[in-house]
Structure formats: structure tokens, C-alpha cells
Amino acid sequence: MNRRLPEQFRRVFQSVTRLALILPVCLAMIAGCKQNGDAHNEVVAMFGSLGLGPGQFSYPRALTVDSQNRIFVVDKSARIQRFSPEGTFQLGWSMPERVAGKPVGLYAHTDGKIYVPDTHYHRVMVFDPDGHELARFGREGYGDGEFQLPTDVAIDKQGFIYVSEYNGNDRVTKWSPSYEFVSVVCAGEIDGEVMRRPAAMDIDKDGTLWVADACNHRILHFDLNGRFLSSWGEMGGEPGQLRYPYDIDCLDDGTILVCEFGNHRLQWFDREGNSIRIWGEQGRGKGELWAPWGAVVGSDGRVCVVDSLNARVQILEK
């Protein structure tokens, strides 16, 4: 055994120890370097806190706004809660089954119905705004009329329902207003990449479908027959780049609002994928986001974002 080896190790260890003692200073300096912004000035309301009581959240993961600007939020306790436009708790209900998992999406249709992709039960459930179950459709599987972990719902002007799903069945399917399977809208390889976790969808005023292809960090654009129109977005944190887009909302003025889970921010794009505006940065304070899962714009123009790890909802001014 080389007796010098332990001595060499000792020198290396001492060097590493010295470096490690300098590290905290460097890290503290990095952690302290924060861009000051005025994002908090744009927040007009903020509600929610950690817990399982009324008005409290346990890792909220989706929200939607109905035609009366009431806000519906679903969290990881499988409760759906309804709030007034100002954020006052109105009522709540629980999913009928929740041991296997909880929903990750919500959609409020103009007719008042609330569509809930009941993700780990591989179905979509339909409620009225007071939480009474109206219908459910879908079953577990990979075929027609079946789901694997549905994530979001969108409905076109004719009442056809579009459902996105993942877990090896990454696709969007189309259903009739009477909840019967119609067709597969899009699946598989699209523009050079196989779709991976279509986390959210929306249909714009022109009647075209926008899909957040989350794990490919891009946005896909189709017509309602599934014809591919365009895609944009690439992985990153710069303006125009995306990191795990988990929600998408098409605004009346043609802009696209994307909620980025990985970048802890909201980003607005034009239809060609050019970044228009960015809001939010990582943190716990007002105007900061921490792993947001969803964002939606109400008819009053205010943006509601579910700030998941902070267990709250923030409402931004127009």
C-alpha cells in the first residue's frame, strides 16, 4: 500500500474543506441577487393559505373562471372550491373518489358546467357550479373512448369536447356534446417530436386548438380536425422560451397566455410565438410565484394564477 496516498488524500480533503467554507458566502451572494420588480404592484387580490379548511389549499393545481367570473380551484386534497371574483370562499365539494389520485385540470364552460378531468380515475366528470354531479364519461385504457391520465378539457362553439391525456397515451381526443367518443384529434409525432404530456388546451376565438406540450416545452396549434398548423417554443428561461408550460389561455385580443411551471412565471405571446410580456418571478412574496400550475383570464380581463407551492391564488390587474 502506498503510504503517501493518505497524505495526498489529506491535502485534497483540506483543499475541499476550504472551498466548501467559501461556498456558503458565494451562494449567499447569488441567492441575494434578485431582480427588483414591481410585479407585486399588479396584484389586486390574493387569497388562500395552506390547509384543508374552507378557503385553504393543499397544493392547488388547477383553476378556471366561469362566465360570472367566479373562480374554481381544485387542489391535491381533491376538493373543488368556488370563490367570488374577489376571492371570498363560497362553497366547496370533494371528488367522489380520491385515494388513487387527484385531478389536475378544470374547465368552466359558458353553459355553467364545470368539467373536471379526474386524472387518476381516467375519466372526465361534469358538475354544475354548486358541485352536483351531472355526468361522467371515459374509462381507463388506451383505445377509443378510453383515457390514460386526462389533464385538461376544452369545448368548441358547437359543444364538442376535447380532452388531453398522457402516460404513454399522449393525445387529444374529441367527444360529442352527449359524451360519446368521436375521434383522435392529434397524437404521436408532431413537427419532429412526439407529443409528451399535453398538459393544457384552449380554443381561440377563431376556432383553432392550442395545446401546451409540456415536456417538450412548446406550444402546438391545430385546427379542430387535428390538422397541424404551427408550433413554437423551446426549452429555456429567456423571453420567448418555455419551461414546462402547464396551462394556456387564448385571450380575446389574440394573445396567448402561458403559465410556466418550470420558470415560475406567466408569459404572453402573439400567435407566432413572439414573447410580448413576462410576469412573475420565483418566490414567496406578493407578485412572486412558486411552481404555478394554472392561469386563466376572466371576462373582466383579470388574470387569475394558481400559485401552487405557495398554496394561494393571485389575481392580477388587467
Binding site: 390547509g51 384543508l52 379548511g53 393543499s58 386534497s77 380520491r98 385515494v99
Partner: peptide
Amino acid sequence: EGTTTAIDDARDTTGGF
């Protein structure tokens, strides 16, 4: 009073969970 805990919630769901 009336605080719901996760274990309470689980018990309500599946009884004896």
C-alpha cells in the same frame, strides 16, 4: 375547532383508511 386534517379526510373517505 372544526379543523380538518389529512388523516381525518382520509378516514372520511374510506373509513378506517
